[in-house]
Nucleic acid binder design. Structure first.
Lengths: 151, 151
DNA sequence: CAGTGTCCTTCACGAGGACGAAACGAACGT
DNA sequence: ACGTTCGTTTCGTCCTCGTGAAGGACACTG
């Protein structure tokens, strides 16, 4: 396994046996090969490096949510909602917990949370983040799978 | 991404462009290729399936069933059924036991359990899990057979 | 082998509930 | 005056889950 996170493309001679590692950051190609094929495999390895190296989103003190080198400003309510989801990144947060986080003083009406989830979804989608619904249990924040996020 | 956890080896024609997915369960090879090279890539894919799907599935407290790096949400009834099957992973669980687990209060009709088994089968299939029938004795949960990639 | 009953699989349907989304208006800040 | 935030209402859609019914797979019997 590539301990340091560096990808490797093994060039296999015509009469040699290809390697059998399961390391996702290692690949091989049989020579002779076209530039196109080499480029293709190199790019996939690069994409995998970037995919495995991406960390968790971060919320700074000004209400800016950072992820993947981009950021979006969040209004107060949605900032508190995201904060609660970040505390439990990639795990389920109940609707009650979100209600308490978003509205510390009052108890919001039935659909207030729904509407804010919709608006929050649109914002974080620009960062390549996804809020998934777990029916009757809550919501879950995670990175979108192979998304094409707008700039 | 291969939703069901089955690997795929794409055979790329001589004049075609190779795919660029970062999915670790997908690979490609340029035709014409020797049997040795195809075998090698197939085996690596199989090894990766084994690696990602090793260990028992886990049901968290929110009704999410995790296996092989993926998860699916389960509704209440099916969550209780799976919990019973996980207690006896890879061994037979009787229909009566499943009925008691799924419906602690009432006694379900004859094919209520049948229908839920069907629906449960479809869900866990996405994780590469299989519910096998042992006629007149019950059901059994296990990982799906590691199958080679198709063309 | 044909007949028969049991067990299992799957579909289609409908009621009820949970969720999503648009539209509107009020309040707020600049 | 203008854009943004935020709560409310309203309506639509999807999901859950039980029911009924049609059919397949299998064992057992004559």
């Amino acid at each position: 396994m590539r301990e340091d996170g560096t990808p490797r493309l093994v060039l296999v001679a015509e009469d040699a046996t290809p390697p059998l590692t399961t390391d996702v950051l290692e690949d091989w190609i049989r020579l002779p090969a076209t530039d196109e094929d080499v480029e293709s495999r190199v790019q996939v390895l690069d994409d995998r490096v970037r995919a495995t190296a991406s960390g968790a989103p971060e919320l700074d003190e000004h209400g800016l949510l950072h992820f993947g080198g981009r950021w979006v400003p969040l209004p107060p309510v949605e900032m508190r909602l995201i904060a609660a989801m970040l505390d439990r990144y990639r795990t389920v947060v109940s609707r009650e917990a979100l209600s308490r986080a978003g509205w510390p003083e009052t108890v919001p009406g039935r659909n207030v949370l729904d509407v804010h989830i919709v608006r929050l979804r649109r914002r974080v989608a620009d960062l390549g983040l996804v809020i998934r619904t777990v029916r009757s249990r809550g919501y879950l924040l995670e990175e979108g799978s192979l998304e094409s996020a707008g700039a």
